[in-house]
């Protein structure tokens, strides 16, 4: 593994991790917001039992 990673420059590696992290943060936040917090009645009804089970503020 050390040989494989050595072929990448340090900045490439840090860059890829940071970009992946930011993308994951944005997409993940949207999904969690939609399931747990969005005010839409449709989303609330569909995710009702999930919201309660995870302890999201509900109703």
């Amino acid at each position: 593994m050390a040989v494989k990673t050595a072929s990448l420059s340090l900045t490439d590696r840090i860059g890829a991790r940071t970009v992946a992290g930011l993308m994951a943060l944005v997409i993940g936040s949207i999904l969690v917001f939609g399931v747990g917090l969005a005010n839409s009645q449709t989303l609330h009804d569909a995710a009702h039992d999930t919201r309660h089970s995870y302890g999201f503020p509900c109703h």
Partner: peptide
């Protein structure tokens, strides 16, 4: 999972 991965990556 994506948010947890983001925490680890960042």
């Amino acid at each position: 999972a994506l948010m947890l991965a983001a925490v680890a990556l960042l």
